[in-house]
Structure formats: structure tokens, C-alpha cells
Amino acid sequence: MNKAFVKENEGDDDDDLDVAAVALPAGSKNYMTKQGYERLRAELVHLMNEERPAVVQTVSWAASNGDRSENGDYLYGKKRLREIDRRIRFLTRRLEMAEVVDPAQQPNRDQVFFGATVVYSDKAGEEFRVTIVGVDEAEPLEGRISWISPVARALTKAREGDTVTLRTPAGIDELDVLEVHYPET
């Protein structure tokens, strides 16, 4: 097929469509733990210093082989370079706007704030243990939830023994706060 009839986005200006991207509430900061910041920074350094140069070398080698239209190494390499560059731009922006918070320095250790590990139970009596972290470091299946998640918002400012209301599309649930912990300094 003639390339005139195929829409190809060479620029790939869809940086905001990054798989890991989570929109922050308007006017809010990108709160992050030190560990989350270091993990994103390490990923950025790895992409810039190791992965990107290796792919550039492969693309350069593939380009020197001649016909690029059917050269799989060249085509895949160019696509992979665009993905790496997109991720580098995304990580750079996220790290620039990050505000690192040390939960161990929280003065109100009896209340739930960013960085707290909370044990709570729902109406059914099922217990959950979650740690409230930044949007870029959330792993709900591992018990790390984003500070903008409905559960984290419901728990914020609660104390041990409090009951908070969680509003979800499935309805309203009552959460009993059983324990609040912060990392030690």
C-alpha cells in the first residue's frame, strides 16, 4: 500500500497516553515517597544510559543493511526508540514536578496522612492493610494505594477507632480504622 494512504505518526505526540500515567487532581502536587522517587529516577537513568544507546546501535546497524522498508530490526528499533523517548519525557516531567515526602517525619502519627500504613475492616469484617503512596508508585495488589484513590481519601485524617464512609460506584461502605503506622525515623 502506498504510504500516502497510511497515517503514520512519526512524532507520536501522545505523551499523555503513557500506560502508567495517572492524572493528578488540578492544582495538586505530585507527592511521592523517597523510595518511589528513587525507583523512577533509576528507571530514567537506565533508559537513558543503557537501553536507549543499545537500541540506537541496533537501529544504526539495521539502517546500514540497505532497504529499510522491509527491515524488521530497523522498523522495530525505530518504534522502540519512540517508546523509550516517550517514557523518558514522561519520567522527566513527573520527577520535575515531584514533591518528595518522608512519612517518617509526620508529626501527627495518630492520624492517617500520606505515607501511613493503615489496617482497616469493611462492613463484612474483612481486614485490609494498605500504605498510602504517590500516584506513580501505587500497586493496589501489593497494598500500596494512591493518595487520590477513594479509599485513601476516605481514610485521610482518620484515627485508630474511627469509622469513615467510603463512597464507590457500588454503593456506600463503612470502614473501621484498626491501626495507623508510619515508618520509623
Rank of each mutant, 00 (worst) to 15 (best):
F114P: 00
E127M: 04
I172G: 01
L81E: 11
E137T: 12
K3M: 12
Q105R: 13
I88Q: 01
K29G: 02
V100T: 12
L81R: 05
L75K: 09
G27A: 08
S64I: 00
D16M: 11
F90I: 11
V6S: 14
A20C: 13
G77P: 11
A116F: 07
D102S: 01
S60P: 01
A116M: 08
D102N: 01
W147T: 05
E10K: 06
A170Y: 09
I88S: 08
Q57S: 11
V100G: 00
L155W: 09
E70R: 13
N65R: 12
E50A: 08
K7Q: 04
R39Q: 09
F128D: 06
K3L: 12
P107R: 04
I88T: 12
Y76K: 05
L24P: 15
W147H: 15
Y120G: 06
L17H: 11
F5V: 04
L141R: 05
I145V: 15
A62Q: 07
G36V: 02
R93D: 12
A42H: 07
N30R: 10
F90R: 01
D110H: 11
T165F: 01
V135L: 04
A104D: 06
L17P: 00
V164L: 03
I84G: 08
V164S: 01
R68F: 00
R89K: 15
E38P: 15
S69K: 14
P25W: 01
Y37N: 04
E50K: 06
F90L: 01
F114G: 12
R167Q: 15
Y31R: 05
L40N: 05
I84H: 10
R89E: 07
T168E: 13
A116S: 11
L40F: 03
V59G: 06
P107W: 00
I88E: 07
R39C: 02
R41M: 04
N108H: 06
F5A: 15
N108P: 01
V55S: 08
A63N: 08
D67E: 09
A124S: 15
V22R: 01
A138P: 09
G66A: 00
D13C: 10
A54L: 14
L175D: 07
S149P: 04
L44T: 08
R167S: 12
P107S: 07
S28M: 04
A170D: 13
G125C: 10
Q57L: 06
V119C: 10
F128C: 02
S64N: 14
D15S: 08
D85M: 09
D85C: 05
T117A: 05
E38Y: 02
A26S: 12
V119W: 04
T58S: 07
G115S: 10
E38G: 10
I88G: 08
V180W: 00
S28T: 11
E179H: 14
A138K: 09
I148L: 05
Y37K: 08
P53Q: 03
R86M: 11
T33A: 00
I84S: 13
N2T: 09
F90S: 04
R153F: 02
K7Y: 09
P183I: 00
S28I: 04
E38I: 03
A4D: 12
